[in-house]
């Protein structure tokens, strides 16, 4: 599952380069053109596919209003707290599970099989536990990202080269040195990949929860545009959301050096 959604830079030989760029431009242009034609053709109900200029105007309006940034900040806040809580819990759980075969056999199946269950169904319970405000959304984010992070860290612990650990031990490294000089550097890739997967699901968990019950955050902006049947605005906010999510994913991949490691 780890490979899915990782942005790899395609190997580009020079002669392909210009034609690839041309093809991309052609595809984008064709998509925009057919969109516009569909919009003005009147085949669909009015506003279901709004004309491009309307979406453009909605995008500019959305981005120029202050309340968008207020909602954005609110959502980022929730996701960040959820990611820290779920991430730290996942890191600890992963380290414990990865350190012992016995513990792994006893508890890892639960994480492994609970990981790919739909987390949003826990939302009614989260509301009961943490209230309808930010608490339940943070809990959704934390519960979502806990599983991929814990599983990645546990797998990361196990794939460390035994030689590296022996080198550390023969240098008489203390536990702190072992952790910072041997374990964490050797586990960098799986840990960052877990974080990348965790961010993805935390984002979905938090935003979906916001569309269900909330009065602020980007998820609320989405459902509010739907309730007002403001389609240009709905398209605009979705475009912004996707760009932000894809950007965050690419940023973690780049900062974590995941593509460099992959190429080695």
């Amino acid at each position: 599952m780890a490979e899915i959604g990782r942005l790899a830079r395609a190997p580009q030989a020079w002669p392909w380069r210009t034609s690839v760029t041309l093809l991309r431009a052609a595809i984008v242009l064709a998509a925009l053109l057919s969109w516009q034609m569909l919009a003005v053709s009147g085949l669909l109900y009015r506003d279901v596919v709004p004309p491009l200029p309307e979406v453009g105007v909605a995008l500019v309006t959305l981005l120029s209003k202050r309340d968008f940034y207020w909602n954005l900040w609110f959502t980022i806040d929730e996701i960040a707290i959820g990611l820290v809580l779920g991430g730290v819990a996942g890191l600890v759980a992963g380290l414990v599970i990865g350190s012992s075969q016995f513990i792994a056999k006893a508890f890892e199946p639960y994480l492994y099989y609970l990981g790919p269950t739909p987390k949003i169904i826990f939302f009614p319970v989260m509301i009961m536990w943490f209230g309808a405000g930010a608490g339940s959304k943070i809990a959704m984010g934390a519960a979502s990202c806990f599983f991929p992070i814990a599983l990645s860290v546990a797998a990361g612990m196990r794939q460390i080269d035994v030689v590296l650990i022996k080198v550390g031990l023969s240098f008489r490294a203390n536990p702190w040195q072992m952790a910072t000089k041997i374990y964490l550097p050797a586990m960098r890739q799986p840990v960052i990949n877990g974080l990348r997967l965790g961010l993805g699901v935390a984002l979905i968990g938090t935003l979906l929860a916001e569309t269900k019950i909330s009065n602020r955050g980007l998820g609320f902006v989405v459902i509010d545009a739907y309730n007002a049947f403001n389609m240009p605005r709905l398209y605009a906010i979705l475009i912004v959301l996707f760009v932000l999510a894809i950007g965050a994913n690419a940023l973690i991949t780049r900062l974590g050096g995941l593509d460099e490691i992959k190429q080695k």
Binding site: I4, R6, A8, L208, T211, G219, V222, Y226, L238, A245
Partner: peptide
């Protein structure tokens, strides 16, 4: 031209578009 777009699509929270699909 498109493989990276598909990978990007995989990392976007597509399910957030459900209100759009409702319409």
């Amino acid at each position: 031209a498109c493989e990276n777009w598909v990978a990007a699509m995989a990392s976007a929270p597509l399910v957030l578009a459900y209100p759009l699909f409702l319409v």
